[in-house]
Design a protein around this nucleic acid. Sequence first.
DNA 1: GTGGCTGCAAACACTTTGCATTTTT
DNA 2: AAAAATGCAAAGTGTTTGCAGCCAC
Lengths: 166, 166
Amino acid sequence: MADAQRDQLAPVAVSDSPLVKFREFLEIRGEKLTEPRRVLVRHIFNSHKHFDADELVRDLHDAGHQVSRSTVYRTLRLLVEAGLLRELRLTNRNAFEHDYGYPAHDHLHCTACNRVVEFRNEEILRLRDAISLEHGFRPTGHRFLIDGVCAACSRAHTPRRRLDLI
Amino acid sequence: MADAQRDQLAPVAVSDSPLVKFREFLEIRGEKLTEPRRVLVRHIFNSHKHFDADELVRDLHDAGHQVSRSTVYRTLRLLVEAGLLRELRLTNRNAFEHDYGYPAHDHLHCTACNRVVEFRNEEILRLRDAISLEHGFRPTGHRFLIDGVCAACSRAHTPRRRLDLI
DNA sequence: GTGGCTGCAAACACTTTGCATTTTT
DNA sequence: AAAAATGCAAAGTGTTTGCAGCCAC
C-alpha cells in the first residue's frame, strides 16, 4: 500500500520510550511517576489512534485497569505539556494523538463517515513560515484540517444523489 | 496601513443584506423570521469581530435587547447552517465569525496575548486541493491555524528573557 | 388557526477541583 | 518524613432540551 493510501503514517524512530521521556519530564519538575501514570502511558502508546478522555477511561476499565477519571484528565494534560501527546480539537470534544515518535502531519476529515486520515506535506511548513514572517509572527505550531468527503463516501453517495434529481 | 499589517480584512461586496439572506434560508425551510432573530442578525452583522455565545448574550443585554440564552444558541446554529456565520473552534469554547460578505481567510493566533489575526493566501487553496486529490477526497472546506507569538509580544518578552539568563 | 418560536428551568456532557487518604521519592 | 498523587464527589463550564404560552405566517 502506498503511503498516500494509508490512514496512518509510519512511526519515526526515537531513542527513548514514551515512558522514559515522561519520567524525564516529571523529574525535571520534581513530580512523580506513579503506577496510574505508568498504566496510562503504556496503554496510550500501545496502539496508535485518536482518542478522547472518555474512550480512554472506558478502554482502561475494559482492560481491567482502574484509573479514575480525574487522574486520566490530569495525566492527559501532563502528557501534552511533556510533548508526548497533541490535542486535536477536531470537534467540540477534545481528542488526542501521539506526538512523540510520530512525524508532524495534518488531517483530512471526512464529514460523511467521520474518518480522519493523516497526511504529510512539506510545503505547508514553508507556507506557514512565509505567512508568519509577513505578519511578524514567530510560529510555534499550526493545524491544517481539510474537511471533505472521502473516496468511499463519494462512491456511496453519488448514485443516491442522481436518483434524487429525477 | 498595508493589508499585511491589518488584523481584519476588507469586506466583500454582496448583493443581499445578511437579514435578507437569512429570510430566504428560513423561507425555504418553512421557518419563521421572528423579532429575536432579527435583533440577533442585526447585532451580529453590525460589527465585524469574533465572538462566542456568551459574549453575544452579554452584548445584547448591555444594548438593551433581551434575547434568551437558548434562543441565542438556537439562532447561532441556524446562522451557521445558512452560511452566514462560520464556527471557529480556536479554543475549547466555540467562537463564530462572519462568513457571508467576508472573504475566505485563515488565522494567526498569538498564544501570548491571545489576539487573532486574519490573513488571506491563495496558495493554501491550491495546496488543499492538491492534497485532497492525492487522497481521493472531495474538499468542502478547511481550517489553517498558525499558532505563534506576534511581533508586539516578541518585543515585550525578549528583554525579560535576557534578564532571566543572567 | 397552525406550526413554529420563545423563555424558562432543568438536564446534559465534559472537565476541573477540594479534600482526606495513599503512594512515591 | 515530606511532598505529591489518587479517588471520590461535588462544583464548574458551555450547550441542549422539554414544555407551556406566544407569535408569524
